[in-house]
Simulated scan of single mutants.
Amino acid sequence: MPTHSSRALILGALACLLLVCALASVTYGARDIALADAWSALRGHADTINQAAAAQRLPRTALAAAVGAALAVAGVSMQAITRNPLADPGIFGVLSGAALAVVVGIAFFGLRNPVPTFFTAILGSALAAVFVFVVGSLSSPGGARGGDPAPLSLALAGAATAAAGSSLVSAVLLPRVDVMDTFRFWQIGSVGGATFEHLLLGVPFLLGGALLCLASAGGLNALALGDDVAAGLGAHPGATRLVAATGAVTLCGTATALAGPIGFVGLVVPHLCRLVVGSDHRWLLPTSAVAGAVLLIAADTVGRVIARPHEIAVAVITPLLGAPLFIWIVRRQKVRDL
Rank of each mutant, 00 (worst) to 15 (best):
D227C: 09
C16W: 04
T240F: 06
V249N: 07
R112M: 12
G322D: 11
V20R: 02
G263D: 06
A171R: 13
V265Q: 00
L71P: 08
A291Y: 02
P309C: 12
A66G: 06
G234L: 01
S167T: 14
R331A: 14
A64M: 04
A293N: 07
V172G: 05
A8E: 09
G292V: 09
M78P: 08
F92R: 01
S279F: 07
K334R: 14
G44V: 11
A121M: 00
L9V: 14
T301P: 11
I49C: 01
I188S: 06
L223V: 09
T301V: 06
V177N: 13
S96M: 08
A230H: 00
A162Y: 05
A289V: 11
A157E: 11
L63S: 06
A231I: 07
S125K: 06
L272G: 15
A62I: 00
G136F: 08
P319A: 12
T120N: 08
A157N: 08
V302P: 02
D181E: 14
A72Y: 01
V277H: 05
L199A: 04
H45P: 06
A54H: 10
A36C: 03
S40P: 10
P89G: 03
D148V: 11
R43A: 15
L325T: 12
T246H: 07
V302E: 03
F118E: 00
A72K: 01
A24N: 06
L95W: 07
G142P: 06
T246W: 10
V243R: 15
A315P: 07
G266E: 11
P151E: 04
I188H: 11
A34C: 10
G219F: 10
V103I: 14
R184H: 14
P270L: 08
G193C: 04
G208S: 02
F205Y: 12
P309N: 10
H271E: 09
A323S: 13
K334H: 14
A248K: 02
H281Q: 13
V330G: 08
F185L: 15
L71S: 11
W186M: 04
L207V: 15
E311F: 04
V191W: 07
V20C: 12
P116F: 02
R282K: 13
A98M: 00
V104A: 15
A46S: 13
A171V: 13
I49R: 13
R332Q: 13
W39G: 12
W283D: 05
S279T: 15
A162E: 09
T48N: 10
A66N: 09
P204L: 04
A46Y: 10
G124D: 02
V268S: 14
R304T: 08
L212M: 15
L138W: 13
V294Y: 08
L100Y: 05
L321M: 12
H310D: 15
R83P: 01
T287W: 05
G193P: 12
D337E: 15
R43Y: 02
A230N: 04
V76R: 03
